Amino acid sequence: MKEMIRQTVQDAIETKQKFFEAHEDLIEICARQLADTFDAGGKLLLFGNGGSAADCQHIAAEFVNRFQMERKPLPAIALTCDTSIITSIGNDYTFDEIFSKQVQALGNKKDMAIGISTSGNSANVIRAAAVAKDQGLTLVGFSGAGGKLKEMSDMAFCVGSSVTARIQEVHITLGHILCDLAERILFHGLKPPY
């Protein structure tokens, strides 16, 4: 078992190192755009399934409450939380529409959306991403190595792994980094070159 533990930890470290080395510039761009969105009165919408749904809620909580500093709340909504909305849409239409109808109702041009799908192909995430693009939101995709979400996103963060757990571990670390940088930009005057 100890060898399995060591191998899992090593795989996680290597996956994160490769991802963050490859995406540093895009992370800076995304953090600045996220801060600009909040500064202009926009909000962040997040959507995903299963573990990715939990990541949406986790990231939204970091923005609405706080991450590492005392500051005013920032508007972020995980579209995974309202069981009445989700079940009514699923019942009256299909499960594929549970996020797209919420994006249609809540999203506007000054907002950003983060769609999370380890495969990059979750039907309800792809439909919501399409609505976000149609309505003029900036779309950020968190995915695995590929899928439709990568092609649709304004900023695509694709983790080069086929292991769902490794992908999700990178996604939550990425969410934490984006929140940390956005806080610093908005409330500590962090300016380029950061």
Rank of each mutant, 00 (worst) to 15 (best):
T138S: 08
E151W: 11
I167A: 01
V163H: 05
A165I: 01
R66C: 12
F63P: 01
Y194I: 02
T118Y: 01
N108E: 05
A123E: 02
G141H: 13
G48N: 12
D154T: 11
S143P: 02
K150W: 14
D55E: 03
T173K: 05
G50S: 04
N91F: 08
F187A: 00
L178D: 00
V125M: 06
G51P: 00
I177P: 09
A128I: 01
K18G: 10
T173M: 04
F63R: 04
G175N: 00
T15C: 04
A156S: 14
E97D: 15
L190M: 08
S100D: 13
G136M: 02
K133D: 03
F187N: 04
V170N: 04
H23T: 14
H188R: 09
E169V: 11
N121F: 14
L34A: 08
I27D: 05
Q135F: 07
D82P: 05
L174M: 09
K133A: 09
P192I: 09
S119V: 00
E70F: 15
K110S: 07
H171S: 03
E151Y: 15
S117P: 01
H171Q: 02
A22T: 10
A123N: 09
A12E: 09
L178C: 08
A129M: 12
I116S: 03
C158S: 06
D111W: 09
Y194L: 04
G144P: 00
V9S: 04
A128G: 10
G144A: 05
L46C: 11
K110E: 06
L174Q: 07
I126H: 13
G107L: 02
A113R: 03
E62W: 08
S84E: 02
M4W: 10
D36A: 15
I89A: 10
N65E: 06
M1L: 01
A129G: 12
L26Y: 13
D92M: 05
L45F: 15
L178M: 05
C56N: 08
V140Y: 14
L26M: 13
Q17E: 05
K148T: 15
R6S: 07
K18I: 08
G42F: 10
D134E: 09
S122H: 05
S84W: 03
G147N: 04
G144S: 04
P73H: 04
L178T: 08
F38D: 01
A35K: 03
H171F: 11
F99A: 11
R66P: 10
S117C: 00
F67R: 05
F63S: 07
Q7V: 04
E28V: 11
V125F: 10
R6L: 05
A113C: 14
L74E: 02
S52R: 00
